[in-house]
Design a protein around this nucleic acid. Sequence first.
DNA 1: TATCTATTGTTATAGAATAACATCGAATGA
DNA 2: TCATTCGATGTTATTCTATAACAATAGATA
Lengths: 162, 162
Amino acid sequence: MQPPLEPCSRQLAAARQALSQAEIVCQQRGVRLTQLRRRVLEIIWHHSSPLGAYAILDVLRNDGRQGAPPTVYRALDFLLEQGLIHRLASLNMFMGCRQPGAHHSGQFLICQDCGQADELNNQTVEATLHTEAMARHFEVLAQTVEVLGRCLDCQEASRHGD
Amino acid sequence: MQPPLEPCSRQLAAARQALSQAEIVCQQRGVRLTQLRRRVLEIIWHHSSPLGAYAILDVLRNDGRQGAPPTVYRALDFLLEQGLIHRLASLNMFMGCRQPGAHHSGQFLICQDCGQADELNNQTVEATLHTEAMARHFEVLAQTVEVLGRCLDCQEASRHGD
DNA sequence: TATCTATTGTTATAGAATAACATCGAATGA
DNA sequence: TCATTCGATGTTATTCTATAACAATAGATA
Ligand SMILES: [Zn+2]
Ligand SMILES: [Zn+2]
Ligand SMILES: [Zn+2]
Ligand SMILES: [Zn+2]
């Protein structure tokens, strides 16, 4: 897995957009996007791949801010509740959501080589799982759908590398 | 979440069946289902709901066997490799597979109240995720599909409990 | 038997998440 | 303006999950 890169201009733009969207969403809902929460969201968006809580904590400490695990986990809980980020259970990592506002579970393609993750929102997958659950009288509250594999870039890299 | 129950006769029967199937599968593949591995598989099947690694370790120590986390994690790794158990990423727990022999990812309905989990093998879900991945030139290696919710029993229990 | 390899034992540590309590700060009302 | 209140953050300690590294043992092989 490649080391975390400095944010490129595309990422910085995505982060700016995500942050301004988050401001709007939070204002509409009457919840506070505090400095800390905003900074955690920014850190996540500045990174090219999902980040672990302790990696986020390292960046916060690098900022000069004091903090401990609860600091970052509380911010992450808030962002999860507001649907601004997703948690990847198979990685214990967090990534930004590009369609906040409407809560959803999403599905994720995770590259095992470069660590990058792509969000899908396939209605067939979600609906089929709901149907299967209903057939068993099972009440669905949340879905975790994560596909581990290799992205195109990493497939090509490994072909040329061999 | 209810406390772990003693295995009922249905569970004991399921465990016996799973263990004899495991013996066959391992013999066919020329891998060794040792005492330890067999016992860990048995512990998992004797339990009504998915078990964590440290809960399994407690049972092993209760057996009188000495052991530490690597003991149980190595056995779990073996059982996972042979497709005899599944790992639930959203719970950090392990459960037996009722269709071993053919490797598969499966989908899981997990009850947040009683902790029980049901395995599905819905081809539509799997195929749709493959199609979505292919459209993005993403090579699929494994799928994690877990649905959190409430089973029928727990829905009724909560209705009567209120 | 002697040797080799897979398995298990053992100690220590890394990594992820939360409990419990103290402190701070923004908003509200007197 | 000041006091109060409640949400947010700081702080310490602990629990839970998982692995690294090396030693000892047991099964298979020659
Ligand atoms: Zn999303
Ligand atoms: Zn990649
Ligand atoms: Zn299965
Ligand atoms: Zn239940």
